[in-house]
Design a protein around this nucleic acid. Structure first.
Lengths: 338, 338
DNA sequence: CTGAAAGCGCTTACAG
DNA sequence: CTGAAAGCGCTTACAG
């Protein structure tokens, strides 16, 4: 079918008004060079005629597609869903549309999407990079501004990173564990080679050391951020000869899985085991038990990422940003004495 | 900055090979009219040179942007997040990119997004329409293929609707209520004027009538599909002089809110009150208690929507589709005797 | 302030 | 099978 009724063009508007298409373009894009009265008439007529400027054509000439790309591992993860909403809003506020892609943590797929987005000539990309991300090579290859979201990347790249600083909140969490008599800590961490996972683990170990608590190597498990891995690893931990009395889980989906595992065991939470999660989601308020979590300031993250990206697009420098996370205490952890 | 290093064009590839841009274009788009040996050489060289065909230019000439639009009320709702993932995958499989927008259930905002997407000349749109959606007028105005998702629309539109058929599963749920001694049913429904909300309510009432159960008008509450409204309305229901012994909630977010309300009350679920939700989400497995839910076949919905849309784009007819929902029983409902 | 004309990077009749 | 040339719908120097 394609187009039954041909869409209105600026040429149609120009003809109707007996002016040049140049004037119509200038009037609509807000460029100088049209008298205010004419500009008004043109805008009025364009509206009446239902003109929606053909962006591909506009882009071809002006080099601006007014499109940004967002590549996350999976929008189904509430953390990324909220990020997607925030970023889409921030983009819309700046008159940008958003192309969405899910890398599903597959570097190949990520790479295909990045190339596809470059084909569309997005003006910039917010990327939550996979592990062995070759976005760097890509980035240098085509020179599209990129902002790295949530996960830093090992290779030295010029792309700014917008991420959470977990250290302080994790310190608070471990303090809570210590104050409530936990002595033997476990962590269900993320992939071993993922920098943000490593950072969360390191912060956890360091805080434990400060409080004189143990985090035996045998109680550090590495999952892949999916619910199933959380389930599986929690089962392993519960089978340890000397069980941990507190476990910190590195993201919300693994916590979902871990809760399933706990539910099928006879372990009482928090009496025998305190549980805390990185990532806070609304559902943690109504889980059994409600889960103590480290909340990432999603709105701040998303807006910071878009701001950084538009800065890069405008040729301004965009520094990396770290935003503090916040501890939200719920019933999955014991409460301190007094 | 824009482009530090100018991107490779088919002209560059043509020059390198001493052939015409026409041949390069034909080779890359898979059109006939290039010998196989030359086609291979061109593809090879294009890869080497890092050519990513400039889609805006391609679109301008061919009228195909290879872009689809998806407008949902809010990706933050797990139902829409899963739909977005599925649709994005299905689109990618057909070599389409996806523009994402959140209407946030605001008809004005929806309208702006639809117009913006038309500006981008998306080839088709999957739309989860708001209540007083003027997408119809829009649709007729610009003639972009649209598939309506999840919510049918009152005004007779030619756009096909892909949605769930809740009747059978709701019948089963009410059967479960009846079999477990529930007599006084309540429903926290969606907005009164939303067709899919009405349909769920009607199916519930009819099934109740078949089983000889009451659904007093005073126990039918209308929320707006947000967690807060579920919380508020559940509180109201719990304050009724004669309380319901079973409540059916029309979507997952209102159920989240309702669980908060229940948690703060002294009501025992399911002994005093059975709870069930429309929409199944993974979190319902670990809530307190786990929630019986009517699962919408999200993957089927999403793929059906994309298939319908690509059919419309290809000029083929696309009938509306209704897909059966499925009851998933969990501990928030009493179990039948035997 | 306004317009005529070139040109963005492709695809596609048209011609050979 | 291959190429020269027109043209998609805009924006933007350039000229007045």
């Amino acid at each position: 079918m394609a187009d039954p009724q041909r869409a209105t063009t600026i040429k149609d508007v120009a003809a109707r008004l007996g002016v040049s298409t140049a004037s119509v373009s200038r009037a609509l894009t807000g460029m100088p060079g049209v008298g205010e009265p004419l500009r008004e008439r043109i805008r009025e007529t364009a509206r009446e005629m239902g003109l929606h400027t053909h962006r591909p054509a506009s882009a071809m000439r002006s080099k601006r597609t007014r499109t940004l790309g967002l590549v996350v591992s999976d929008v189904t993860n509430p953390f990324f869903a909220e990020l997607a909403l925030t970023i889409e809003r921030a983009a819309a506020a700046r008159n940008y549309s958003l192309l969405l892609a899910n890398s599903e943590d597959d570097p190949e797929q990520e790479s295909r999407y990045l190339r596809s987005m470059f084909g569309h000539r997005v003006e910039g990309i917010v990327l939550n990079p996979t592990l062995r991300s070759d976005h760097l090579a890509y980035h240098e290859e085509v020179g599209v501004p990129i902002v790295l979201l949530d996960r830093a990347v090992t290779t030295g790249t010029s792309a700014p990173v917008v991420a959470v600083d977990p250290d302080h909140a994790i310190g608070e969490l471990v303090g809570l564990f210590a104050a409530t008599g936990c002595r033997r800590l476990a962590m269900i961490s993320g992939p071993e080679d993922l920098p943000n996972a490593r950072r969360r683990l390191r912060a956890f170990e360091q805080a434990a050391a400060r409080h004189g608590l143990q985090v035996p190597k045998t109680l550090i498990a590495h999952g892949d951020y999916t619910a199933d891995s959380g389930d599986r690893l929690m089962r392993h931990l519960l089978r340890e000869r000397v069980r941990p009395d507190a476990v910190f889980i590195a993201n919300n989906l693994m916590t979902l899985g871990a809760l399933r595992a706990v539910r099928e065991s006879s372990v009482r939470v928090p009496d025998e085991l305190s549980i805390a999660s990185f990532d806070d989601v609304a559902w943690f308020e109504v889980t059994d038990p409600p889960v103590t979590a480290i909340a990432q300031p999603v709105v701040d993250l998303g807006t910071a990422a878009v701001r950084a990206l538009t800065d890069l697009i405008a040729g301004r420098p965009a520094p990396s940003a770290r935003i503090d996370a916040r501890l939200v205490i719920r019933a999955s952890c014991r409460t301190p004495p007094n």
